[in-house]
Design a protein around this nucleic acid. Structure first.
Lengths: 251, 251
DNA sequence: CGTCCAATTTGATGCAAGTCAACTTGTTAC
DNA sequence: GTAACAAGTTGACTTGCATCAAATTGGACG
C-alpha cells in the first residue's frame, strides 16, 4: 500500500501524449480538433500501471478523476450494504471510466484491473473547466454519458427479459465488436474476465455460464478453452440473441 | 395525429416562467443563480399538455429536446426489434427526460404520459450552448446524467440479484421518497402506473406483482386498493429490501 | 345504470436456472 | 517439478417465478 502510493506520486506529473496515442480515434481526443488537443494534453495525467486485481479507485472514496483505459481492461462494480457485488461494466482500451460518479463527491463504484492495465487520468475539475471552453468536447462528454445510460438500459433489458443463452451470446458479440473497433480479430480473442465476473455481470450463476459455454461449443457456434474464445458462427450467435424476439412476433 | 401537430405548433412559442415554477428547487433551475435564470427561461418552451397514453416523443425519431416534467408523470421504455418492451424509468415532476438520447440523432426511447401531464421543453442545441456558458449548469447536467447512470445500475442490480418481493419493496420506497421530496405524503399516494408497467419495469410477470401486493397487504406492511397505496410499515419495507443482504453476511 | 373491455386477482402447473456437491483443470509459488 | 489452491466444469436436485386459465373488479361510455 505504502509502496503503491510512492509509485503513484513519482509518476503522477508525467504528461501523456494524446497526439501520439494510438487510441486517439476512440478516446476523448476523438471529439477535438488537432490544435485543441494540446489543451487536453495539459490536463491529462499519465496514470501508473496496475497489475491484475489492483484497484484503480474505490467506491465511496473521494471522486477526483475519470480514467481512460490505455491498455489492458477494467471491471467496475458496485457493492451493496450487505456486501453483494454487482459488476456494472467491462472497459477496454479507449473507453472512459468514472462517468457514473460525476454526480457525487465520491466514486459510485469500484474499478479494478482485470489484467496488467495502464490508464490516463482526467482530473474532473480541470475536465469540466475544459469542456466549458470546448463545445465539441462538452458535446462528446454528453455523448459518452448518454451512451453509458443506454448501455445500462440494454443491460437491464437483457437481465429482465432474456435467457442465459441470450445473455451470453450478447456479451460475446459485444466483446467481439469492441475488439474489432480496435482492429483486432472479432472472432478470435481472449476474454479479459473470469467466468465468475461474466456470471455476476449477467445475473447468472457461474455454473450456468459454464454450461452455456459448453452447449455453444457442442453446437459448433464457438470454440472455448479457458479464456481463449473463437467465434465460429457469428450469425448463429446473432440468431440466439434474437431468439426471444422471434418467438414474440411471428409474422 | 394531424390535430396533435396543430396544437403543438400553436402553443410552441410560449415561454415558461422558471422564476415562478414551484419545481425550481428540483429541476434545472436548481443549479443556477437567480440572475442567470433568465437565460434558461429564454431557451425553455412551455410544452403542451399530454393526456394519458399520449407519446411525448418516440424512439428513433429525430432527437430535438429534453423535457422536464411539470405535472403528471411519464414512463420511458425501449422497444427491441422483436417488439419487446422494456420500461426503463418512471419520471415525476421536476425530473428530466431524454438524457439517454444525447448520444444520438434520434431518441433512444419512447416517452409517454401515464396521466394528464405537462412538460417544459429544452431544445438540445440551445441547452448545450447555454451549459457551455454557465459552468454550474454544465455541472448540473453532468450530475443529472451520472445520476441516471447510477439509477440504471441500481436497476440492473435489482434485476439480477433480488427477489420479486425485494424489487417491489424497492420501487415502493423509491416512489415514497420521490413524493416526499415534493412535499407530498410519503406514505399515502396513488401509483401513477399500471401493474403491467411495474411488472415490466421490474422484470416480473403481472401476476407476480399482484401476488406480492396481496402478500404485503396480508402481512400488514401496506394497504393497496387498485392504484391507491398506503405504506403502513416503512421499516418493514426497508427490511425486505435488505433481506437478501442480511442472509449473505450474517455477522 | 347496465354494457363492454381492460386491468387485476387468484389458482394450478411446468420449467429455467439456482444450489449443493464432487471432480477436473489451470496457476502460482517454492 | 510438484504442492496447494483457485477457477472451471459436470451432474443431481430444488425452487421461485413464469405461464396458462379462469374469475373478479373497475372504468369508459352510450
Amino acid at each position: 500500500m505504502a509502496q503503491a502510493i510512492k509509485i503513484r506520486q513519482a509518476s503522477s506529473p508525467l504528461k501523456a501524449s494524446c497526439h501520439q496515442c494510438s487510441l486517439s480515434n476512440l478516446c476523448l481526443p476523438l471529439a477535438i480538433e488537432d490544435n485543441d488537443l494540446d489543451r487536453l494534453e495539459d490536463i491529462v495525467q499519465q496514470g501508473r500501471i496496475y497489475s491484475r486485481g489492483e484497484h484503480i479507485f474505490d467506491q465511496s472514496t473521494p471522486f477526483r478523476s475519470c480514467f481512460a483505459v490505455k491498455s489492458g481492461s477494467v471491471k467496475t462494480s458496485i457493492i451493496t450494504e450487505g456486501g453483494e457485488e454487482q459488476v456494472t461494466g467491462f472497459f477496454m482500451p479507449g473507453e472512459l471510466i468514472g462517468l457514473d460518479s460525476m454526480s457525487s463527491d465520491s466514486y459510485a463504484c469500484t474499478a479494478r484491473a482485470l489484467e496488467r492495465t495502464s490508464v490516463c487520468e482526467f482530473p474532473v475539475g480541470k475536465l469540466e473547466e475544459l469542456t466549458g471552453k470546448l463545445p465539441e468536447l462538452q458535446h462528446h462528454m454528453y455523448h459518452l454519458m448518454s451512451q453509458e445510460i443506454q448501455n445500462s438500459h440494454q443491460l437491464a433489458l437483457l437481465l429482465s427479459k432474456n435467457t442465459a443463452e441470450e445473455r451470453i451470446a450478447s456479451l460475446l458479440l459485444s466483446l467481439s465488436s469492441r475488439f474489432q473497433r480496435r482492429r483486432m480479430s472479432p472472432t478470435n480473442f481472449s476474454l479479459p474476465m473470469a467466468r465468475n465476473d461474466i456470471a455476476n455481470f449477467l445475473g447468472l450463476a457461474v455454473e450456468t455460464v459454464s454450461r452455456v459455454f459448453t452447449r455453444f461449443q457442442n453446437q459448433g457456434i464457438i470454440r472455448a478453452r479457458g479464456r481463449e474464445v473463437e467465434l465460429l458462427d457469428i450469425e448463429a450467435l446473432q440468431l440466439v440473441t434474437r431468439e426471444f424476439a422471434r418467438q414474440g412476433c411471428q409474422s
